[in-house]
Amino acid sequence: MLLQQLVNGLTLGAVYTLVALSFSLVMGLLAILNIAIGELFMLGGYLGFAVIAAHFPLAAALLIGMGGAALVALVIDKIGYEPLRQAPPITPLLSTIGFSIILQNVVTNVWGSDPLQLPSGLFDRRVHIGSVQIGVMQLVVIGVTVVLVASVALLIQKTAVGRALRAVSENREVARLLGVSADRITLFAFMLSGALAGAAGVLISLHYAAITPYIGVDTGLKAIAVMVIGGTTSVWGALIVGPLIGIAEVMTIAFGGSQMRDFVVYGLMIVTLLLRPQGLLGARSDSGQPV
């Protein structure tokens, strides 16, 4: 039972990690909070749902979910961020709220406000490991997350695009002088961030075999907490903190305990901001306080 819950928590945590990474790509690079990421996550979930319901394979669902969310992220960058780059950082934050209102409304109109459910039997195959039953879907969620996080980490650390990303995040002007197109890199970061959120959406909706248009807000807020606690600029922070919070959440639901855990999570987030703004695993240099 305990092990069972541990796996459930790990699955949920994997999703938090992905969404947190999605937040931190934009936050670490541009120091803005893209609130619409919660809705991109939700949109990805619905797209993946629709693809699966049409009897396409999981890989197709993932691709469509990621691609769809990335495309919307492109629109958000072009309309909601780029024209407002000179404005104070809260202005683009507000425009992303506008996008999240639109996305929620559109999804509600297309798919309805009631929860959608996948027909049972589609993904309930389980593997038995000793006394523990693990859903195949859970293994897929965790596996896909590990692959995605590793790819992002590799991309940022090892490739030319990653170097350009880091250059822009340190100093836009210098990056421009070095011949890096800051606009194009920003767009790339937005779309990659959208794709990650979309993937997370596909995974969570298939894990629960159900989805509602309101799933984005709660998960989004939790993911912001994961990002902050793990460190806004650290890929590895989210990888550790996400599962921890996922497990804590599942454990308290399964074994009593209560909403008090949210209290603790957000409290921890605030303490992190105050005492260690670079996050648990963030490097000292990015103090996370642009003046």
Partner: peptide
């Protein structure tokens, strides 16, 4: 006072959620 801009916004967001989860229990 220690936080500015977006980081302050995130911290206050956390405060709001803390209060809400407090009244839930």
């Amino acid at each position: 006072l220690r936080l500015k801009g977006i980081y302050l916004a995130i911290a206050t967001l956390g405060f709001g959620e803390m209060v809400r989860s407090f009244f839930l229990v």
